[in-house]
Amino acid sequence: MWAPYASDPAKTRGRLIPEEESSFRSCFQRDRDRIIHASAFRRLKHKTQVFIEHEGDYFRTRLTHSIEVAQVARTISGALGLNAELTEAVALAHDLGHPPFGHTGEDALEELMRPYGGFDHNAQAIRIVTHLERHYADFDGLNLSWETLEGLAKHNGPVTGELPWALAAYAEKHDLELDSYASAEAQVAAIADDVAYNHHDLHDGLRAELFSTDELAELPILDRNFAEVDRLYPGLNYYRRRHEALRRFFGVLVEDVINFARIRLDEIKPQSVEDVRGAGRTIIRFSDEVFTDLKEIRDFLFQRMYRAPSVVEVRAQVTQVVRDLFPHFMAHPELLPKQWRKDVEEAQGETELARIVMDYVAGMTDRFALQEHARLLGTELDPNRSPL
């Protein structure tokens, strides 16, 4: 059974639009299922994690990343006695707001939207699940439970100061208590995101040949992982050796989170989920030692992968795709698909129009953005550029 500080679906704060609950699924299971069936979730299949979607079948996409995050999150939740269904729902939905081309696309949209309130992918995820998914007869969005929405809004910690406009707009009608910490389940989803990308970005960087196995073996934590593999399996095949070492690296991160969370929980001794929200600090996190080691690994990835010349070259090209599409639709909103035109007709002023165009462009997959750019503007990525 769950720990006393876990989120109990029987004590949910409910949904903005009241619904008759399922007779065989908890509210959090139902949230998870609605997220999986959402159009925005399917589109993650063709959205960038690090490498542009068409650059290789083996590189992670936002969809495979989200699935890996959910798997890590369920494991940690189970070990800590938390509600795995809520954790999984937040984990699966946490990247729904990402535009095409990953953080590159986000940076471009943020710049373009600066005169109209800006762009924030976490706030956009809230906008998607509360407004843009329009499939149900009784409401816009997915009408998720309060706890799932809270987790999406503040899984990275309290949201204070000036709120992103999309989040502020929703907060006016549904108080998610943004100035407090989220449930332990949402905190687990956040740290699972860190575990997953630190692990799989090393995999993808190796496959793209942006750095070597020998270079990885000199990094903290990984040096011990490779040494253990070499001791247990002398002469192991090159590919198996690095896979075994990265598998152990993955395990170190998960075990560290679980062990440190248990220390924090023993210190705080929360007796309810409200005690977790009011603890005044993050409970689910890496230990200081592992956090320091990961900073060195992240610095390595930043220099050798995220800012690799081949990656930067593509980023420059796809940034231009977003910079071209947004003003083109602003100037020609009649080019938006039929289902968007009613919103355009009802838009009051330039800011509302910009936010509609932003919703449309942000929802594009990598391939659709490239196709639309070629169709509408007659240009495409350099076909002679060698793939990574």
Results as ranks from 00 to 15, higher is better:
Glu350Thr: 13
Glu150Gly: 13
Leu216Cys: 02
Ala79Leu: 01
Thr365Ile: 11
Met305Ser: 03
Ala6Ile: 04
Val229Trp: 01
Asp230Val: 12
Glu215Thr: 05
Val314Ala: 14
Leu149Asp: 01
Glu185Arg: 14
Arg307Cys: 06
Phe329Asn: 09
His54Ser: 14
Ala182Val: 08
Glu267Tyr: 00
Arg134Asp: 08
Pro387Gln: 12
Gly235Val: 04
Gly205Thr: 01
Tyr136Gly: 01
Pro337Glu: 05
Thr75Lys: 15
Arg323Asp: 02
Arg355Asn: 14
Ala347Gly: 07
Asn237Lys: 12
Leu377Lys: 12
Phe119Ile: 14
Gly278Val: 06
Glu106Ser: 11
Pro270Ile: 06
Gln29Tyr: 02
Glu209Val: 04
Tyr58Thr: 15
Glu346Asp: 12
Phe24Asp: 09
Ser310Lys: 08
Phe326Arg: 08
Leu142Val: 05
Thr160Trp: 07
Arg134Met: 07
Thr64Cys: 08
Gly278Ile: 04
Arg34Ile: 02
Asn384Arg: 15
Asn83Ile: 00
Leu206Val: 01
Phe101Gly: 06
Glu20Lys: 15
His199Phe: 08
Phe59Ile: 05
Ser386Tyr: 03
Pro220Gly: 05
Phe300Tyr: 03
Glu274Phe: 10
Gly141Lys: 07
Met358Asp: 11
Glu162Ile: 13
Phe101Met: 07
Leu301Val: 06
Leu301Arg: 05
Arg247Lys: 14
Ile35Thr: 04
Pro18Leu: 09
Ala354Ile: 11
Ala40Lys: 11
Ser39Ala: 10
Glu110Phe: 11
Tyr170Phe: 15
Val361Gly: 06
Arg127Tyr: 07
Ser272His: 02
Leu325Phe: 05
Asp8Arg: 12
Ser23Val: 10
Leu96His: 04
Ser212His: 01
Asp382Trp: 09
Lys11Asn: 11
Thr319Leu: 02
Glu19Val: 13
Lys154Arg: 13
Leu109Val: 06
Ala73Leu: 05
Ala38Thr: 08
Glu85Ser: 14
Asp324Thr: 11
Val69Ala: 05
Tyr197Gly: 00
Val50Asp: 10
Val357Lys: 08
Thr282Ala: 15
Val254Asn: 00
Pro158Met: 07
Ile284Pro: 02
Phe302Glu: 12
Gly363Ile: 06
Asp201Val: 04
Asp193Met: 02
Gly117Gln: 10
Tyr5Ile: 08
Leu152Trp: 00
Arg242Ala: 00
Thr61His: 09
Phe28Cys: 01
Leu219Met: 12
Asp214Glu: 15
Leu96Glu: 07
Lys338Glu: 15
His332Met: 03
Glu334Ser: 08
Glu53Lys: 11
Phe249His: 01
Val314Ser: 12
Leu132Ile: 15
Ala308Phe: 10
Ala184Trp: 01
Glu85Thr: 03
Ala279Lys: 00
Pro220His: 07
